[in-house]
């Protein structure tokens, strides 16, 4: 696998997880976004990278184009992770409003909210 892309994916996962370990809401969201980017890149690169040959075809299929299947999957994934992130932001906003704090460690009971 491509070295630079692998480093990037690993870096996103590592920093994303590290952000999740922190106690603030904003880091939680940032961590989710980072992990999402890493996962998208991972799926994207699994199909084999090919520069500047997008999958556009005419009547006659060209012999070599980029793999369209991972691209379609990642496209779905981008949109879904968008939905996830927007929902998380509103949820945390609501939780923060109720708790008057942005400490994740105060979210550890279900009953006080």
């Amino acid at each position: 696998m491509e070295l630079i892309i692998s480093l990037l994916i690993a870096g996103f996962f590592g920093t994303g997880v590290y952000c999740l370990f922190q106690r603030s809401f904003i880091k939680l969201i940032a961590g989710l976004i980072l992990i999402g980017q890493g996962a998208n890149l991972l799926v994207f690169s699994v199909g084999g990278l090919m520069s500047l040959k997008p999958a556009f075809v005419g009547k006659e299929a060209p012999p070599m184009v980029a793999d369209p299947l991972p691209q379609a999957l990642v496209l779905t994934a981008i949109v879904i992770s968008f939905g996830l992130i927007i929902f998380t932001i509103s949820l945390l906003l609501k939780a923060q409003r109720e708790l008057k704090s942005d400490d994740l460690n105060q979210l550890n009971t279900t009953d006080t909210l």
Binding site: A10, F13, G14, V17, F21, G47
Partner: peptide, 25 residues
């Protein structure tokens, strides 16, 4: 986090061996 990152790196680097069936694409 670092060891997880390392694990991901190793897996991704090795995943060249994983060749998804090209027939579908």
């Amino acid at each position: 986090s670092a060891s997880f990152s390392l694990l991901i790196f190793t897996l991704v680097m090795k995943s060249k061996l994983v060749n998804l069936a090209p027939a579908i694409s």
